[in-house]
Amino acid sequence: MAHPLMFDDADPLLARVRAIALDLPDAAEKISHGHPAFYTTKVFAYYGGSVKVDGDWEQHEQSILVLADPGDRDALLAEKRCYLPAYLGPAGWVGIDLDDSTDWDEIEELLDASYRRTAGVRRVAALDARRA
């Protein structure tokens, strides 16, 4: 049984995330477990996540999940807008809630860092060459 879609394709925050993520070399989008997932050979970001609070699922529909650099992870999780996502949190992923006050330069940096952790040497070199 397929997962129901858990996002609104017309969501302007998703549009911003999509534009940033799909601008990375060889990045593509697929639907995984009802959420947009951005990947090359491995997923580097998801749009939307959840946490279990007192036995109930709490959805973070307008958020991104990124594979955080280990040195940045604790600082991110100390912020109110960040959370440890269900299932992926123990593997190093962090959820970041998005809203109208989101610092999009920071989101771009977090997506870039997550991409670099998953994309492989050739793709990271292509990204560096493009930004040089």
Rank of each mutant, 00 (worst) to 15 (best):
D54L: 01
Q59Y: 15
D69L: 08
D128A: 11
S32T: 04
V124I: 04
V17I: 05
V17C: 00
L98R: 00
T118D: 07
I96C: 06
M6D: 10
V94D: 10
M6R: 12
K42T: 10
E108N: 11
M6Q: 14
L127E: 10
H33R: 01
L98I: 06
R73F: 06
L98E: 01
R131I: 11
A86S: 08
K52C: 13
Y83V: 03
P70Q: 03
S32V: 02
A10Y: 05
F44Q: 01
D112C: 14
S101Q: 09
D99I: 03
R116H: 03
T40C: 03
D105A: 14
E58R: 14
D56A: 14
L84P: 04
I96W: 09
D23H: 15
K80E: 15
D100I: 02
A15E: 14
D112K: 11
R117D: 09
T40D: 02
A19P: 15
H3T: 04
R73L: 09
A27W: 00
V17G: 04
A45Y: 06
D99F: 15
S63H: 08
D72E: 12
D99M: 06
L65I: 09
A113Y: 03
P4T: 03
R81S: 13
L65F: 11
I20G: 07
V124W: 12
A21Y: 00
I64T: 05
L88I: 06
E109D: 14
R122A: 10
Q62M: 09
K80F: 11
P25K: 02
W104M: 06
H33F: 15
K80Q: 15
L24V: 07
D72G: 11
V51Y: 07
H35P: 12
V66H: 02
G71Q: 05
Y83P: 06
T102H: 00
K80H: 10
D56Y: 06
D128H: 12
D69A: 14
T102R: 00
G92Q: 09
A125R: 14
L76V: 03
L5V: 12
I64R: 02
E79L: 13
A126G: 08
A19G: 15
K30V: 05
A21N: 04
P12L: 04
T102I: 06
E79S: 11
R73W: 09
P85V: 08
D99N: 09
L111C: 03
D112A: 12
Y87P: 01
L88N: 11
T41C: 01
I96M: 13
D99H: 08
D112R: 14
Y46H: 02
L77K: 09
Q62F: 04
L76Y: 08
D23A: 15
L77P: 05
D23N: 13
L24F: 10
Y87I: 01
E58H: 12
V94L: 05
G120E: 00
D8K: 08
R116Q: 10
D26P: 01
D72Q: 12
S101H: 12
A75E: 14
D9E: 09
L13G: 00
R122P: 00
L13C: 04
